[in-house]
Computed example of a mutant assay.
Amino acid sequence: MALLRTAPAPKLDELRRLYELPLFELVHQSRAVYTAHWPDPEIQLCSLLSIKTGGCSEDCSYCAQSSHYDTALQPERLMEKETVLAAARRAKAEGATRFCMGAAWKGVKGGDAKLDAVCGIVEGVAELGMEVCVTLGNLDTEAARRLKEAGVTAYNHNIDTSPEFYPKIVTTHTFDDRLRTIGEAQKAGMSVCSGGIIGMGETVTDRLRMLEVLAGLETVPESVPINVITPIPGTPLGDAEPVDIFELVRLIAVARITFPVSKVRLSAGRTKLSREGQALCFYAGANAIFFGSKLLTAPNPEANEDLRLLRDLGFKPQAPYTDVPVPDSVAATV
């Protein structure tokens, strides 16, 4: 779904004023925005699978899959199509409505054999009636077009943090490289899932600058994931300190106010949150989660735990294609 800006994007000072409000006043405002635009008690359940793990040439300081760091992760080849489809069927049976696939690559280009393989997998997942999201690194124009035609509804490409702090986290590509790929995905007609990670040593200003940049895009992200770092031994951020729950709630609330019609996804780091902490995040405006026991390489709550929590809070899973268009290539199958 293309979410064109219809009002001036908020600037850093405005975001800071929101963030610094008394917590209950901020959450009161974010809750009002949430209920005005998302009146149904629904949470989008997105399952995430690493279809090609490890051996990545990039040096993202938080990532177990980087070949620059000595972690316990063993590189694996691209999964076979039938293995991925079996995982997608299990995810659908558990209640997931969007299936996200990640590959530890610098990127893909038109003409790459690996792009052909991924497009074949995408076509199979789309035929199951699930929304399809992929994260494959940088894209060129041809790769973006191919993915859209295969049935990708959303491209995940987080900007991670502020442009100022980004070089302290990644040196093998630039912040502008991230923005270029977001532009390619949007030009091809895919929606974009883009947010960031907190707990990497950044300041509150860095977190708010991240939101400012995303809000300034001509087409804002369809979903905005807010990840809490999962420290991985062997990476430069393996000793990162835990994030205070109220800092997370504040950022989710500001994101909800900033992106009223985008999904705000409570993403990595939920295993460290209590049920009460997650409930407060949902109350502040989060309306999507990654669902299933594993997020690429990091642990996640078990599916039955999530379903019980959502049931206790009065939520139901959002149906697929509720607010994104059905791709032409799969319209007849859903």
Rank of each mutant, 00 (worst) to 15 (best):
M1P: 01
A7N: 07
P8K: 02
P10Q: 06
K11T: 12
K11G: 15
L15N: 08
L18R: 08
L18F: 05
Y19H: 13
E20F: 14
L21Q: 14
F24N: 13
E25M: 07
L26N: 00
Q29G: 01
T35M: 03
Q44C: 10
C46A: 11
C46I: 13
I51D: 12
T53E: 09
G54K: 05
E58D: 14
S61M: 12
C63D: 07
L78T: 12
L85E: 04
A88D: 08
E94C: 05
E94Y: 14
G95W: 03
T97W: 06
C100L: 01
G107S: 13
G107P: 13
K109E: 15
G111R: 06
D112F: 09
A113M: 09
V118W: 00
V118I: 14
M130G: 03
D140T: 01
T141K: 15
T141E: 15
R146A: 15
K148S: 10
E149D: 15
E149A: 15
V152T: 09
N158V: 09
V170K: 08
H173V: 05
T174P: 08
F175A: 00
D176A: 15
T181I: 11
T181Y: 12
G183Q: 15
Q186A: 15
G189T: 10
S191K: 05
V192T: 15
C193E: 10
I197M: 06
M200V: 03
L208H: 02
E212V: 03
L214T: 06
E218I: 01
E222Q: 12
I226G: 00
N227R: 06
N227I: 04
T230G: 07
I232Q: 04
P233Q: 10
P233E: 00
D239L: 09
E241S: 12
V243D: 05
F246S: 09
R250V: 00
A253Y: 01
A253D: 00
S262I: 10
A268G: 14
T271C: 14
S274T: 14
S274K: 01
G277H: 04
C281L: 05
F282T: 02
Y283P: 01
Y283S: 05
G285A: 01
A286H: 00
I289E: 02
F290W: 08
F291I: 03
S293N: 14
N300V: 01
L310R: 09
R311M: 07
L313M: 04
F315A: 03
Y321G: 04
T322H: 10
P325L: 11
P325K: 12
V330S: 13
A331Y: 01
A332D: 12
V334E: 07
V334F: 07
